[in-house]
Every structure is written in C-alpha cells, then in structure tokens.
Design a protein around this nucleic acid. Structure first.
Length: 195
DNA sequence: TATACGATCACCT
DNA sequence: GGTGATCGTATAC
C-alpha cells in the first residue's frame, strides 16, 4: 500500500480532514502491524479558531502544530488520556486534524490486550480509546508520518461523497462560531463512529 | 509557587 | 444522562 505523502497534508485542513476518511492508520509494535480505517475526524484551524489549541498563540505544548505538515501532534488531556492529530497546511500555520475513531483492521489481538475486557466495538471508537488501542503516547508527538517506520498513514479505500456525514465538533467549549461550524467528518452508518 | 480546567472515558442510575 | 477520575498546561500572582 502507498503511504500518504507530504503534499497530501499540505492543503486546506478541511480538505485533508474529509480525505483522511477511508485511509488506514498504521502502528508497528514489535514488528506487528496494528491498523484501522479512519472513520471519524475533526479539523482545528489556526489561531482564529477558538477551539484550536493554537487559539492563544504558540506554546511549548502546541508547537508541533506550527511545524511542517504530515507530522503527528499528540497531546495529553484530562490527566489520563492521549489524543492523536495530524498537522496540516504550510509550515508556520497552526492547524491539524484530530483522529476521533477507527475501524480496526489488523492486530486486533494486540489491541484487545491494550484495552482489556472491552468489546471489539469499543477498541477504537473514540480519540483516547484509539490511542490506547495502538499504544500511542507522548513519545510520538512530532514524529514524521511521511518518513517514519512505526506510525504512518496508508492509502485505504475510496469514499463516496454520499457516505460522508458532517456535524459540529464534539466536546469543545469555545465561542459560538467555533461550536457551530461543521468541521467534524465521519462515515455514515459505520459502527465505530463515536456516538 | 499556586490555581483552574480540559479536543475524554468508564461506570453508575 | 450524570459524575468522578487525575495531572499537564497555561496563566496569574
């Protein structure tokens, strides 16, 4: 399978978010592939987006978002969870796509070990859940998804426009504009989309 | 140095 | 549908 190249990420964040649906996120653990189809994402775009981590300017925490496209932005939240984003647009402009849910494809046995006593449907149907299932933590913040051998994104399957649903982003507290724009994209009817 | 809170989840009712 | 867990950040003092 072909790896997504940097030009894919160096585009409008909404375009990248929409086109990430149906691609395959891959993590290699001890030579074993853990992977899943991306079925739900959210776009966070620039310092003018009140819900974006860059809304208050650049800090050590969000610095990766200001860097070159095609890198992983991983952050720690609520004292116990990790979330994975991919950096988009030109270097210097802070924007990223949050990966919210996957449909598991490879390495289910290992994912079940990382998320014990959970039904398969709940392995990767949330941004922090998929990080736990794929063993993604702060060590992956800033890694290059275009050249790395451990964490990367491959071409998946084609997604028809009619298959794509949109909605406001989930779980954010910000101004009215940020809370109302439909910057969440998901595959309609997919069992692994969160709620 | 101190404090408030969050791009969530799990478990309870 | 409501709430507690739990701690790194950002911001204020």
């Amino acid at each position: 399978m072909d790896r997504l190249r940097r030009d894919f990420y160096r585009r409008s964040t909404l375009t990248v978010a929409r086109e990430l649906l149906g691609q395959r996120l891959v993590m290699v653990v001890d030579g074993q592939r853990l992977s899943g189809l991306i079925v739900e994402v959210e776009a966070y775009i620039g310092e003018d987006d009140a819900a974006c981590h860059a809304a208050c300017g650049r800090t050590p925490r969000n610095g990766v978002m200001y860097g070159p496209p095609g890198h992983a932005y991983v952050y720690f939240i609520y004292g116990m969870h990790h979330c994975l984003n991919v950096v988009t647009e030109e270097t210097g402009f802070p924007a990223a796509v949050l990966i919210r849910a996957l449909e598991p494809l490879e390495g289910l046995e290992i994912m079940r070990r990382y998320r014990p006593s959970r039904p398969d449907r709940e392995l990767t149907n949330g941004p922090a859940k998929l990080c736990q299932a794929l063993a993604i933590e702060m060590g992956f913040n800033g890694v290059d998804l275009c050249t790395g051998e451990v964490l990367f994104i491959e071409e998946g399957r084609m997604v028809a426009q009619e298959e794509v649903g949109t909605s406001p982003r989930i779980g954010i507290k910000a101004d009215e504009l940020a809370m109302s724009v439909a910057w969440r994209f998901y595959l309609r009817g997919n069992a692994f989309v969160s709620r």
